[in-house]
Every structure is written in structure tokens, then in C-alpha cells.
């Protein structure tokens, strides 16, 4: 695992040529658009703008689709036949991933691999190549620095880009996977100057640290019952915008749907803990019957339970959930308030 980082330089033109080749090879190339990471059909679409805010949604749906069949069934009189799903393991290259996105798959990996290993997730993840891009601006919702990351974090990237000037990037090879990917393009690469690109990284303004995640963890343990939850519960509308745009929320539902009289499929669909019926028992009993309990679950899962279980915070600090919340509930503000 201890891969030694290599520092290279690539010109913007060569980088675009490389992208053109990725597309020509039939791989999926994703790059941040406005609402989402868009599939790049033509390199002229590529913006590579380090000052863009995070897209409204992350590229989570490419490892963990919003709705995917996990098996097909065919019923005859009293018999049933099951048919496996062929997961398409197409190579996916993400270009210009935000540092608050790059680590998301690593965070999710724990959940999808403890005990039972989710083959759908793992296969897709294996074929992912993440080219991160340093981030040079933030807004009031960003808080990557409070959850152990930063706008210049290389964590989770296979390759990492640092704009040196108008038409040059420093390209850091971070992982073995990244090296393998870039090997065929070595003609585009020149040796880089680590000190120089480090200077760029240092000059970047970073969001102020809003809270101490260790203290939050402790406070949550002591404050399962606290009137603060109620205030949030009054305003929150119980949608799942916050969960669905989140790069690391991972809850799902399993449902069968027939598409003919005798055939159908079992679907794995995104679901979210803010929905009232998420935990509703068939008997009508609901352990999280009111919104304040559901929001409490959201914060606790992210900043306490996941930490206890897997040693990582279930949040990258991207601020998407807050930016998109129709009633402006700001998770950074709420978590910063998780103290007496």
C-alpha cells in the first residue's frame, strides 16, 4: 500500500488529449457540470475549474446507482427461476473530482465490505479512476477542514491535479492504480517540482475549522435526549434531498417489481433515514416516529456511529446537503452547535 508519490507536469492541452483518448476507448469520463458530474461526450465540455463549488450531486450514483436491479426472476405455475445480474464493470474515469468527493468511495468501502461484501459496489469501485483537482474556493457551507480533509487533500485520488498556471498542471501520481492508468500517456508527462506545487497548495485559502469532531462525538454520546433536536425537527420537512445528494449516505430499499405477468426484478433503490416510513414496522410502531428523532439519527450516524464502527466520519464536509436543503438546514451549523 505504501506507494511513493510521483510528481509530474502535464499541459492542459495534453490533458485534454488524454481525455479524448479515454472517451475514444469507450470508457466513461465524468467531469463536474452544474447539477451533477456529467458524462463527457466531447472534450470541449471540460472546464477543469478549481474554483467551482461542488456540483449539486456527487458521483456516488456511479458506484451505488440510484436504482439498480440485483436479480431477475421468472415465475411459472409454482416454480421460480432466478437470473443473475451482469454488473457492467466499465472503466470510469472522474476528471477534476473535488477533494471533498475523492475520499467518498473509501469511506463507503467500509460499509459495503464489513461482513458481507457487496459485489456490485466492489466491482464498480475497482474500475474507478479518480483524478482529483485541488479546490481554490469555498462558500459558507463548506467544512472539509472540520472533518479531517482539506481543499488540497489528495486522499482518495489516484491522480491529483494542481493548477500551476493558465495552461499547466502539476500531476501527482498517488496510487498504483493511478500509475497504471497514466503509464500509456507517459509521453505527456514531464518531471515536476514538488516544492513549487506545494507552494501553490499552501497559498490556497481554506475554510476555517468549525468544530472539533472528537468533541462532537463525545457530546452526541451524552446528548441523545436534548431539546436542540426538537428545534430542528420543527423545521425539517422529511425529504431525502440531504441523503441523496450526499456523497457518502448509503441507505437503500429492496423492492420487487414485475414488468410482465410472470417476470420481474428485485431493485436496490436509494432510501433515506429522513423519510417517516423508513423505520416503520408493519405493526404501525415506529422507533423514529418524529422528525427530530430522524435528524438526530442523521447527525449521530455521521459523527458518532460510523466513527465507532469504522473509524471514519461519514461526511466529507462538501456542504451539499445544506446548500440544497429547501429550508436551509445547515449541517455545519448544527454540528458546530453540538456542544453545551
Amino acid at each position: 500500500m505504501s506507494f511513493k508519490m510521483e510528481e509530474k507536469i502535464i499541459s492542459k492541452d495534453d490533458l485534454l488529449k488524454l481525455c479524448g483518448d479515454v472517451i475514444a476507448k469507450g470508457h466513461t469520463l465524468l467531469a463536474p457540470g452544474i447539477a451533477e458530474y456529467e458524462q463527457v461526450k466531447d472534450v470541449s465540455q471540460i472546464r477543469l475549474d478549481s474554483s467551482a463549488l461542488p456540483t449539486k450531486t456527487s458521483y456516488k450514483s456511479y458506484v451505488f446507482p440510484k436504482a439498480e436491479p440485483i436479480l431477475y426472476y421468472k415465475r411459472s405455475k409454482s416454480d421460480v427461476q432466478l437470473i443473475d445480474v451482469d454488473v457492467n464493470g466499465k472503466k470510469i474515469v472522474v476528471l477534476g473530482a473535488k477533494p471533498c468527493d475523492t475520499n467518498s468511495i473509501n469511506i463507503l468501502k467500509h460499509l459495503f465490505n464489513w461482513d458481507y461484501e457487496d459485489e456490485f459496489f466492489n466491482l464498480r469501485q475497482k474500475h474507478f479512476v479518480i483524478i482529483g483537482l485541488m479546490c481554490s474556493s469555498f462558500d459558507e457551507y463548506c467544512f472539509c477542514t472540520s472533518v479531517g480533509s482539506s481543499p488540497v487533500s489528495e486522499e482518495g485520488s489516484d491522480l491529483f491535479l494542481i493548477p500551476i498556471n493558465e495552461d499547466k498542471f502539476a500531476l501527482r501520481i498517488i496510487t498504483e492504480k493511478g500509475k497504471e492508468f497514466i503509464e500509456p500517456y507517459s509521453e505527456f508527462l514531464k518531471d515536476g517540482d514538488e516544492a513549487k506545487s506545494n507552494a501553490v497548495l499552501e497559498s490556497i485559502k481554506k475554510p476555517e475549522v468549525a468544530f472539533d469532531s472528537k468533541q462532537v462525538h463525545e457530546w452526541l454520546g451524552d446528548n441523545f435526549e436534548n431539546p436542540k433536536w426538537e428545534g430542528i425537527g420543527n423545521v425539517c420537512l422529511s425529504c431525502a434531498q440531504c441523503a441523496f445528494v450526499c456523497p457518502v449516505c448509503h441507505c437503500f430499499d429492496l423492492v420487487d417489481e414485475d414488468y410482465s405477468y410472470s417476470e420481474g426484478r428485485r431493485m436496490k433503490n436509494w432510501d433515506g433515514c429522513q423519510f417517516g416510513h423508513f423505520t416503520l414496522h408493519a405493526s404501525g410502531h415506529n422507533p423514529r416516529d418524529i422528525q427530530s428523532k430522524r435528524y438526530r439519527q442523521r447527525v449521530n450516524h455521521k459523527f458518532r456511529y460510523y466513527v465507532d464502527k469504522f473509524g471514519e466520519i461519514l461526511c466529507t464536509g462538501c456542504g451539499r446537503c445544506s446548500r440544497g436543503c429547501p429550508v436551509s438546514i445547515d449541517i455545519k451549523e448544527i454540528v458546530s452547535n453540538c456542544k453545551d
Partner: peptide
Amino acid sequence: GKCGRCNIGN
């Protein structure tokens, strides 16, 4: 242990 609805705390 994946779909997320059965948890009570951690």
C-alpha cells in the same frame, strides 16, 4: 448491515 434501517445507535 448495509441498508441502514435497523440500527439502534451503533
